[in-house]
């Protein structure tokens, strides 16, 4: 019994040590573990033009211009975090989820002209899942504009009866 108790305490002490070491290491690396920086971070940091970095944020409403240059599709848009916005150019195929108001992460460099030249654009989707008819119903009622921000609290729509939302959900598959 005492031996067991001793082993248990020993294990708890080791766990405490490993846990606090991990916590310290994580808090030390905290800034280096981010996958992307926000436009306001970029405004504060002024990284050099050679540094490749990831810029994340929402595609600003009304900023997307799709054109072409030398036969390649060229998209211009702004990435915003609500405080600052950075103009971005990207030559290539945008992911399916790309739209105004969508979260995106762009990999590229910040030019001297203040334009971010993206080599790759990834779309970030949020944690809400709703059928098309529910989304339409929310938009029609003026409860949500997907271009302007996240949907209203889930409790207001996640039990929304399919009848209210238009077509029955079961036919949606």
């Amino acid at each position: 019994m005492t031996r067991k108790r001793r082993r248990l305490y020993w294990l708890l002490a080791c766990g405490l040590g490993v846990g606090s070491a991990a916590a310290l290491a994580l808090s030390a690396f905290r800034d280096n573990l981010v996958f992307f920086v926000l436009p306001s971070d970029l405004a504060a940091q002024h990284p050099g033009p050679d540094r490749t970095l990831r810029l994340g944020g929402l595609v600003a409403e009304g900023s997307v211009v799709r054109g072409s240059e030398d036969g390649h599709p060229l998209a211009r848009f702004r990435i915003t975090d609500g405080r600052d916005a950075v103009p971005v150019t990207f030559s290539g195929i945008l992911p399916d989820l790309f739209r105004e108001g969508q979260g995106v992460v762009a990999l590229g460099t910040l030019g001297r002209d203040g334009v971010f030249h993206a080599a790759e654009v990834l779309a970030k989707h949020d944690e809400t899942y709703m059928p098309k008819d529910v989304a339409e119903a929310l938009k029609q009622k003026g409860l949500w504009n997907p271009k302007a921000g996240p949907p209203p609290p889930a409790s207001t729509w996640n039990t929304l009866a399919p009848a209210k939302a238009g077509a029955p959900t079961k036919a949606g598959g």
Binding site: P131, V134, N158
Partner: peptide, 25 residues
């Protein structure tokens, strides 16, 4: 929650309603 990630945060939490349509839940 701690870092900027491409992966979205949790949909189902202990504290709030899941931000998912019930027909998907």
């Amino acid at each position: 929650d701690w870092w900027n990630t491409l992966h979205q945060p949790a949909t189902i939490s202990l504290t709030g309603a899941p931000s998912m349509y019930l027909g998907m839940l």
